[in-house]
Amino acid sequence: MHTMWKGSISFGLVSIPVKLHAATENKDLKLRQLHKECHTPISYEKVCPGCEKEITNDDIVKAYEYEKNKFVVLDDEDLEKLKKENDDKSVEIIDFVKLEEIDPIYFEKSYFLAPNDGGGKAYALLREALKDSGKIGVAKIIIRSKEQLAVVRVYENTLLMETIHFPDEVRGTGELQLPDDQNVSKKELDTALMLIKQLTTPFEADKYHDEYRSALLELIEEKRAGKDTVEATDAKKPAAKSNVTDLMSALQASVDKTRKKPGKTTAKKRAPATPKPKTGKSKGVS
């Protein structure tokens, strides 16, 4: 399993060296977009709409839009300074709480925490202490230069860290147009409660599947087996295309310029030509 971060868990004076691994993965099937006519994959270029030209990463700066079309530009030195000030490779547990006290809306992404070299005993100690206490740790961590709020809890026999949203990142419901009780009758409520009771069962994660993804995979395999496939033509590189266009323009301009020169050159040559001696007009010539 890929190690994406190395650091430590700290609570009180205890420090546990750990490694961080992504606990979940996105199983969505990524579909490419092709040109319908030639089946070439479509690429998206970075183009400045103001200058109407393609730009590279070196031409881009980061900025914060504080009003419509008004920005504060932040250079790399500004951001690097903040990164160094907050680049602490530590999961600092600051509180212990009960899991049920945190609403699921706060949870974001899950990571496995594994002990790093020399951290086995302290890792086991924290794991057993969390099990026996029935508590989870609330912590702070820096991931990719961003401060994250997180919880550390036991999952199976592993310490699991889940990043959670800060309170100001969770939107309020005040702007939503919600119904009142709509005079729900006792009979309607009892029927709904009966239905909930009939459908109540212990949660078993293995029985839930992404049926759409399975059907899509089956469809793709059927088409592939039936040779219902296409092959992309070689895509021309944007830079090469641009050079060809510029070259053709230059060649055409050169051709046009060359076409005009013979007329001018001929006129210039004729002008200084030595006149023929005047012999007078012959009588038979009109």
Rank of each mutant, 00 (worst) to 15 (best):
residue 280 G to N: 07
residue 222 E to W: 01
residue 205 A to R: 08
residue 279 T to K: 15
residue 223 K to C: 10
residue 215 A to I: 08
residue 221 E to Y: 02
residue 283 K to W: 11
residue 215 A to S: 12
residue 220 I to P: 00
residue 211 E to I: 07
residue 214 S to E: 15
residue 236 K to R: 11
residue 279 T to F: 07
residue 243 N to I: 15
residue 204 E to T: 07
residue 259 R to E: 15
residue 236 K to W: 07
residue 238 P to M: 03
residue 260 K to S: 15
residue 223 K to Y: 07
residue 230 V to P: 00
residue 278 K to P: 00
residue 255 V to G: 06
residue 222 E to C: 01
residue 263 G to Y: 14
residue 285 V to P: 00
residue 275 P to C: 05
residue 259 R to Y: 11
residue 274 T to H: 10
residue 228 D to A: 10
residue 215 A to H: 04
residue 252 Q to P: 00
residue 204 E to S: 05
residue 249 S to P: 00
residue 230 V to K: 08
residue 281 K to E: 06
residue 211 E to Q: 08
residue 270 R to V: 09
residue 270 R to M: 11
residue 213 R to N: 09
residue 269 K to W: 01
residue 235 A to G: 14
residue 262 P to A: 05
residue 259 R to V: 14
residue 226 G to P: 02
residue 253 A to W: 05
residue 212 Y to R: 02
residue 249 S to E: 15
residue 242 S to Y: 02
residue 262 P to C: 04
residue 268 K to R: 13
residue 233 T to W: 00
residue 264 K to C: 00
residue 233 T to C: 03
residue 214 S to L: 06
residue 261 K to F: 09
residue 234 D to C: 04
residue 205 A to H: 07
residue 264 K to L: 09
residue 249 S to V: 13
residue 249 S to A: 14
residue 241 K to L: 13
residue 252 Q to M: 06
residue 232 A to T: 10
residue 214 S to I: 10
residue 220 I to S: 00
residue 257 K to F: 04
residue 225 A to M: 12
residue 239 A to Q: 11
residue 255 V to A: 13
residue 284 G to V: 01
residue 217 L to T: 09
residue 247 L to S: 06
residue 205 A to D: 08
residue 258 T to L: 12
residue 226 G to C: 02
residue 229 T to K: 07
residue 251 L to D: 06
residue 247 L to H: 03
residue 239 A to H: 03
residue 218 E to G: 05
residue 234 D to N: 11
residue 277 P to I: 12
residue 260 K to Y: 05
residue 271 A to L: 09
residue 257 K to T: 14
residue 209 H to T: 15
residue 226 G to E: 06
residue 235 A to C: 02
residue 240 A to W: 03
residue 242 S to H: 03
residue 206 D to R: 14
residue 208 Y to P: 00
residue 269 K to H: 09
residue 282 S to R: 13
residue 227 K to N: 12
residue 258 T to F: 07
residue 265 T to H: 09
residue 246 D to N: 11
residue 239 A to Y: 04
residue 246 D to T: 15
residue 256 D to Y: 06
residue 245 T to D: 13
residue 239 A to P: 00
residue 282 S to K: 15
residue 269 K to Y: 09
residue 281 K to H: 04
residue 233 T to L: 01
residue 262 P to Y: 10
residue 228 D to I: 08
residue 251 L to M: 13
residue 210 D to S: 05
residue 258 T to R: 10
residue 227 K to P: 00
residue 256 D to C: 03
residue 256 D to P: 01
residue 212 Y to N: 05
residue 250 A to Y: 04
residue 209 H to C: 04
residue 261 K to L: 15
residue 258 T to Y: 10
residue 284 G to C: 06
residue 278 K to S: 10
residue 264 K to A: 11
residue 277 P to H: 11
residue 244 V to N: 05
residue 279 T to I: 12
residue 230 V to R: 03
residue 223 K to H: 13
residue 206 D to A: 13
residue 275 P to S: 12
residue 256 D to I: 03
residue 271 A to I: 07
residue 258 T to A: 13
residue 205 A to Y: 06
residue 273 A to P: 00
residue 212 Y to M: 02
residue 247 L to V: 03
residue 260 K to A: 15
residue 231 E to H: 13
residue 242 S to G: 05
residue 246 D to P: 02
residue 238 P to W: 04
residue 275 P to I: 09
residue 245 T to H: 10
residue 273 A to I: 06
residue 247 L to Y: 08
residue 271 A to V: 11
residue 238 P to K: 08
residue 270 R to L: 15
residue 231 E to D: 12
residue 276 K to L: 14
residue 234 D to A: 08
residue 262 P to G: 09
residue 250 A to Q: 13
residue 234 D to G: 14
residue 240 A to Q: 12
